[in-house]
Design a protein around this nucleic acid. Structure first.
Length: 809
RNA sequence: GCCCCGGUAUCCCAACCGGCAGAGGAAACGGUCUCAAACACCGUCCAGUGUGGGUUCAAAUCCCACCCGGGGCACCA
């Protein structure tokens, strides 16, 4: 069947979306684009089977559906292959892309092949550079020196989002910290909008993803409070969410790796001890730091801070439990009401003072209390509850000019520099006299130098640095000798706007024509794994807002609706070679065929659930498809026969199945839609063998409906059925059958009659029966009379036409 | 530790606003076809919905507590 239909489809190109004379309304269905790893695997098969159901459904419903595909083609695997086997990363990538495309064709993906592009093409990454420079000019791209996440295995820095539980997202190596000057995008400027615009996505995206993004952005409300440090001119500001506990502050902590700590330690007797401590902290991995069961460490800096509300002298400590890059890098410690502060206080024998009453003494229990309650030991705040105390103290601080309300975010700016080869070069020239100079737009793209002759081995510095001819250039500003920036961009840059490029993939004068983007976007339906709940989806939302501000877009959210598909697992755990539970897609396709594998993926369960390959039955799918296919050979009436003359009962079942399938697809219950199709196949089989017979027009109607319903999932089988039923290709454009509402009306309904909740009688009643009539009928029915046996009746609940419940005395 | 999601037959899964617990599939078993088997076809088997309480005429569905599984966050002041 594959050999028969693939060339026909190539010829008809049913999923081409770019015809200028196409009057159908538009819809944009998008699958997250893949990394070109070579052959497709089981995960791809599931993702594309699901995306295809949606895309093909909307085509059947008469929409001009754009369902594009492309390749997220920059990234480490190409480079690692180059290092290991000496192949050129570009050649490796393009060979994989070619293989991937041919697998997709065989898998019968309904992609628009005219829109394919690869992010590693200079025609594409040129616009990464252009966007970067636009942001640079707007102050949204900047360079700073900071302690960054460092993966010792990949020898490159990582964004915060790419550190998962202290491990590198790519290779699971424990991440360490390194002080480096790197490029950042100011995503934190958009924190509030990223949060607030989620309202548009409510109900359209999985709640889980919205929640994860909300937590990741981590907005918190509190106050900044200034503390004078003895012997220092400038006061030090701290951020706290509990300014009401200010009277309970008994010490002060500065992040050990923050410059302020070194400054305060300078000239004290503990300077050497502090230096040792900082050295130790620096060598700690992110994993160790995140271990909250770990004992608190720190150094008393021999300095004192003055509590602005009561003038108390409190000792200043340096510790690694305070983070340099959150808030202000320094905190007031209130051990009675913060567990971390309490742990620290108990380790070093510092005072604990309860200021929110009622609780047991935390210094004895070891449990800090976070309850609300009347304040004590807090001067003017005594007796107030938490909310009132916060208002009161914030006012006091504001009046004295030593504090103010403040908002903080967990979100950090997006670190985009990478010290690797296979990515987009950062289009900046470093000039000894002009500084950071953007490469002029007319000199873009800054094309990667050839990999040949470069040592791509990770060594902590970009391999581009060794491409002498490439690095040495002249300053676009003053013309003097200057050096190119040698880092490449995070590949998440590439994926942050690719969905826009599909609308206009060959544009060579702009990233896209805003008019075309306005026609197609935002994406009506996005399909992809939940692994990108924060990473790609957050960055894309950020990019969209920036481009909106630049006037290039007229919407602020890129993906109107999101479906997260699950993973394909084996015996409950992720497939991997090391576990020895890898199922090869090519093997499965060879044994059961494309259609059966696609059907198995879709039928396995709700799309967001994982598919456990040990629990599903591709051979069962294959059998079902054969059963369905056989129907097409049994129909003896001619195409175009008047179906209204067909058997009424079968027609009703057919139309009900179509309606149910359509509602199921629209609410993502694809497994249910398949079940409805199976039901229809079963009743049609019966009609042919032992019912109205193969010549009844209703049998043709049912078989054709089966072919169209199956075309969403099993394109080969459906096409072949369609042809055997006497139609020209392609079934993909046959159009979804129109449901006749008259055939959905039930002539009678079974009404159940309960006595005390137990079913005692079933009545066949017209659907429009009135309550009173039904009540009378029910009360007079023999089953009810018997069940009541002379008992009185307390209440009768009537829910016409389906239910009557009689409650006896 | 905190926050989400889930728990229905041997297994995977359905069940709309609370209204007969079963749509579909897998497995198993029996039968028809066959020299036999496979295929195909027909049929059978199987739970009172994790546990305990509550609300209701009525709970898989709503509420509370707990158990189990999965996921997210986690020294963010």
């Amino acid at each position: 069947m594959q050999e028969r239909w693939l060339p026909v489809w190539d010829d008809l190109a049913p999923f081409r979306s770019g015809r200028p004379d196409d009057v159908r309304p538009k819809k944009y269905v998008l699958d997250m684009f893949p990394y070109p790893s070579g052959d497709l695997h089981m995960g791809h098969a599931e993702a594309y089977a699901l995306g295809d159901v949606i895309a093909r459904y909307w085509v059947q419903k008469g929409f001009n559906v754009m369902h594009p595909i492309g390749w997220d083609a920059f990234g480490l695997p190409a480079e690692n292959a180059a290092i290991k086997r000496g192949v050129d990363p570009g050649e490796w990538t393009y060979a994989n892309i070619a293989q991937g495309l041919s697998s997709m064709r065989r898998f019968a993906c309904s992609f628009d092949w005219d829109r394919v592009f690869n992010t590693c093409d200079p025609d594409y990454y040129r616009w990464n550079q252009w966007f970067f420079l636009q942001m640079f000019r707007r102050g949204l791209a900047y360079r700073k020196d900071s302690a960054v996440n460092w993966c010792p295995n990949d020898q490159t820095v990582l964004a915060n989002e790419q550190v998962v539980g202290g491990l590198c997202e790519r290779c699971d190596t424990p991440v360490t910290k390194k002080k480096l000057t790197q490029w950042y995008l100011r995503i934190t400027d958009y924190a509030d909008r990223l949060l607030e615009d989620m309202e548009q996505l409510q109900g359209q995206w999985p709640d889980k993803v919205l929640l994860m993004q909300k937590n990741w952005i981590g907005r918190s409300q509190g106050a900044e409070v200034e503390f004078v440090i003895e012997g220092r001119e400038q006061p030090v500001t701290v951020y706290t969410t509990r300014p009401d506990t200010l009277y309970g502050a008994t010490f002060f902590v500065v992040a050990a790796d923050f410059d302020l700590a070194a400054e305060l330690a300078a000239g004290t007797t503990v300077e050497a001890e502090f230096a040792d401590y900082v050295e130790k902290v620096k060598h700690e991995s992110e994993m160790d730091r995140l271990d909250s069961s770990r004992a608190k460490t720190g150094v008393f800096l021999q300095r004192y801070a003055i509590n602005p509300v009561n003038g108390e002298r409190i000792p200043v400590w340096a510790s690694d439990y305070v983070l340099a890059d959150y808030g202000t890098g320094a905190i007031m410690a209130v051990p009675a009401h913060d567990q971390r502060d309490l742990d620290f206080a108990r380790t070093f024998g510092l005072d604990v003072r309860v200021v929110v009453g009622g609780a047991e003494d935390p210094s004895i229990t070891g449990e800090a209390t976070a309850d609300d309650g009347p304040h004590v030991n807090s001067g003017p705040l005594d007796g107030l509850d938490k909310a009132d105390a916060i208002v009161a103290i914030t006012q006091v601080l504001a009046d004295r000019g030593t504090g103010r309300p403040a908002t903080n975010y967990r979100l950090r700016d997006w670190l985009i520099s990478r010290q690797r080869y296979w990515g987009t070069p950062i289009p900046i020239v470093h000039c000894p006299s002009c500084g950071e100079v953007p490469v002029p737009d007319d000199q873009l793209p800054v094309v990667l130098p050839p990999a040949a002759g470069l040592d791509l081995k990770p060594k902590g510095q970009s391999p581009l640095g060794a491409a002498t001819d490439w690095v040495n250039t002249t300053c676009p500003n003053c013309g003097e000798p200057a050096l190119r920036d040698t880092d490449t961009m995070d590949t998440f840059m590439d994926s942050s706007w690719y969905f826009l490029r599909y609308a206009d993939p060959r544009n060579d004068t702009a990233p896209f024509d805003p008019a075309l983007v306005r026609e197609w976007l935002p994406v009506d339906q996005y399909v992809g794994g939940v692994t990108h709940a924060i990473l790609h989806l957050l960055y894309s939302r950020f990019f969209t807002k920036v481009l909106f501000d630049m006037g290039m877009l007229d919407f602020t959210e890129p993906f109107s609706r999101l479906l997260n598909q699950g993973m394909v697992v084996m015996d409950g755990s992720a497939m991997s070679k090391s576990r020895g539970n890898l199922v090869r897609l090519s093997d499965e396709l060879a044994v059961n065929g494309v259609d059966a594998i696609r059907l198995t993926m879709v039928f396995a369960g709700p799309p967001e659930d994982d598919v456990d390959w040990a629990e599903v039955s591709p051979s069962g799918s294959k059998k079902f498809l054969a059963r369905a296919w056989r129907l097409s050979g049994d129909v003896t009436s001619a195409p175009g026969v008047d179906v209204t003359a067909g058997d009424h009962e079968l027609r009703k079942l057919t139309h009900k199945a179509i309606r149910d399938a359509e509602m199921s697809v629209e609410s993502f219950r694809f497994n249910v839609a398949v079940a409805r199709t199976m039901e229809l196949v079963n009743v049609t089989r019966k009609a042919i063998d032992s019912g109205v017979g193969p010549a009844d027009p209703a049998v043709r109607e049912a078989a054709e409906a089966v072919a169209i319903m199956l075309s969403l999932v099993a394109p080969y089988t459906a096409e072949d059925m369609w042809s055997r039923l006497g139609h020209a290709p392609t079934v993909a454009l046959a159009g979804w059958p129109v449901v006749d509402p008259a055939l959905l009306v039930e002539e009678s309904v079974t009404c159940i009659v309960q006595v005390a909740g137990k079913v005692r009688e079933r009545l066949e009643v017209p659907p429009g029966i009135g309550e009173d009539e039904l009540r009378t009928m029910a009360l007079g029915s023999p089953g009810v009379v018997k069940a009541l046996e002379g008992r009185g009746i307390r209440t009768v609940i009537v829910r016409a036409p389906k239910l009557v419940n009689i409650v006896p005395e």
